[in-house]
């Protein structure tokens, strides 16, 4: 089953995402911020990256930019979890190499539907 790198500094969001994904049979790697995620992404190949935008140490956009530099993450789908209010962040995210986004708040079903989109 595909492995998903889920990055969020909020423990409750991380738990919700991880619980939903594990329930759907995915492998989940959790990370608390961009820096943590970068290390974990290097250690284990993820098939999809789901990342929050605003995080300490390294934000989601910077994380995507860094990941895209790694050969093994050149084509990996990477989704930003953003809020509606952050419209220009979507463009910034895309410029950094994000595949797409999922608008917060989302429910578990929407999360799974979006993942299905990129995993086929």
């Amino acid at each position: 089953m595909a492995s998903i790198l889920a990055v969020d500094d909020s423990a409750s969001m991380r738990q919700m995402v991880a619980f939903t994904l594990k329930g759907a049979g995915y492998d989940v790697i959790e990370a608390v911020d961009g820096q943590d995620a970068l290390g974990k992404a290097r250690a284990k190949q993820a098939d999809v990256v789901l990342t929050d935008l605003n995080m300490p140490n390294m934000d989601g956009i910077q994380l995507i930019r860094e990941l895209r530099k790694l050969p093994q993450y050149k084509f990996t789908p990477m989704l930003l979890l953003t809020t509606e209010s952050a419209g220009d962040k979507k463009t910034e995210g895309k410029a950094a190499g994000a595949t797409g986004w999922l608008v917060k708040p989302f429910n578990p079903d929407q999360l799974l539907a979006t993942l299905k989109k990129v995993l086929g």
Binding site: D9, S10, S12, M13, N54, T83, K104, P105, F106, N107
Partner: peptide
Amino acid sequence: NVIFRAAHSIKGGAGTFGFRDIS
């Protein structure tokens, strides 16, 4: 930034977990 991020996280979670007034 720290203050903003904290507010942002509280809002994001509130939306997800159904606390409309908090969000």
